[in-house]
């Protein structure tokens, strides 16, 4: 009997362990009609999305003060970037009857049915950090990923004097923003006839893979002068460049502003990084959801801008991100 109880207890522990990541931010249900709750559903648990959440919470506090009602943010991150897991999180979030949901879809097609169902129940849904797929009619808050990538590619082209061999690493091909950045990199570099573009590997959004793939690319191409990537795993590529002893020799313009990436910018292995501004995406998402909840029409695209980080402004960015 004792053993049975004990095993039951352990079973419960394990079940709880599964649920833990989803419970980190439990919805505070609005006790009164006027109180508002907005749900943020990112791709997965990731430092970058924490920054989005920070912006969202800040905006919610501002709204609370201005409107004199309680506006709360329910941040629900799936443990893995997995479409099935994300759909479950979405359904659970919708069940709490929030006033709006902002979603960064892992795979829009896979979540389409769930999104439409939630909309049919009168809950506004917008997308952030991802372009709105054609025909979806959804508002997209974020920057133009193509523009972010073009900017990085242009900068790299200038850094290498518009000639030489450049590798482009693909991220997670079925993530639309990664795919969009990848295409924009290729399109931009195609403008310069003296730049030769080669396959730079594929990291599936995983730092270990970014490192081993970049190492092989560097080995196979001793004459490489430039590197571009499409996701937040730039530190893997940077580690490979450092191990190859090619820091500075291979110019690398990466994406995003995670602290480890910024530190590589500081040390010079990453020449520059072009970053979205996650806090801005969070706050604009909340603003758009509030407007939608009030019954206002909202724009199809809200551009939250891009930051270009290199040695000139790296210190202020490190300060900003570390805070």
């Amino acid at each position: 009997m004792k053993k049975k109880l004990l095993s039951l207890f352990v079973a419960m522990m394990i079940v709880m362990a599964f649920c833990m990541p989803m419970m980190t931010a439990v919805a505070e249900e609005a006790p009164f009609g006027e109180d508002l709750t907005f749900v943020i559903v990112p791709k997965c648990v990731h430092a970058w999305f924490d920054e989005v959440n920070k912006g969202a919470v800040l905006q919610a506090e501002m709204l609370s003060k201005a409107l004199n009602v309680k506006v709360s943010i329910d941040y629900r991150a799936p443990e893995n970037a997995d479409v099935v897991e994300q759909n479950t999180v979405l359904e659970q979030a919708a069940a709490t009857k929030p006033n709006g949901i902002a979603l960064d879809p892992v795979d829009y097609e896979g979540s389409k049915a769930v999104i439409q169902e939630i909309q049919a129940r009168g809950i506004p849904v917008i997308l952030f950090d991802s372009p709105a797929p054609e025909g979806s009619g959804l508002t997209s808050v974020g920057n133009d990923f193509a523009q972010q990538a073009s900017l990085a590619a242009e900068q790299l082209a200038a850094l290498i004097g518009y000639q030489g061999k450049v590798a482009v690493m693909q991220g997670f091909p079925s993530a639309p923003n990664h795919a969009e950045r990848y295409q924009a990199h290729l399109d931009t570099l195609a403008k310069y006839p003296d730049i030769e573009v080669i396959e730079g590997g594929i990291d599936n959004d995983n730092i270990e893979e970014a490192q081993s793939q970049a190492a092989a690319v560097l080995a196979a191409n001793p004459d490489l002068v430039g590197y571009l990537n499409c996701d937040a795993c730039g530190s893997g590529v940077a580690a490979a460049i450092e191990e190859a002893g090619k820091a500075g020799q291979v110019k690398f313009v990466s994406m995003d502003n995670l602290i480890e990436i910024l530190e590589y910018v500081k040390s010079g292995t990453i020449t520059a990084t072009s970053s979205t501004i996650p806090q801005m995406q969070g706050s604009m998402s909340v603003l758009m959801l509030w407007q939608a909840a009030m019954g206002m029409d909202i724009p199809a695209i809200v551009d939250t801008g891009i930051a270009y980080i290199d040695e000139t402004n790296i210190d202020e960015w490190i300060a900003m991100v570390q805070n």
């Binding site: 362990a17 924490d50 480890e260």
Partner: peptide
């Protein structure tokens, strides 16, 4: 089954400690 469960436990502790952020320096 047990290690799948424990994997979530260890992964969960990891997230609680780091909130997904890398530890640098």
């Amino acid at each position: 089954v047990a290690t799948i469960g424990m994997s979530s436990v260890y992964g969960g502790i990891n997230l609680v400690l780091t909130k997904g952020k890398a530890i640098t320096q």
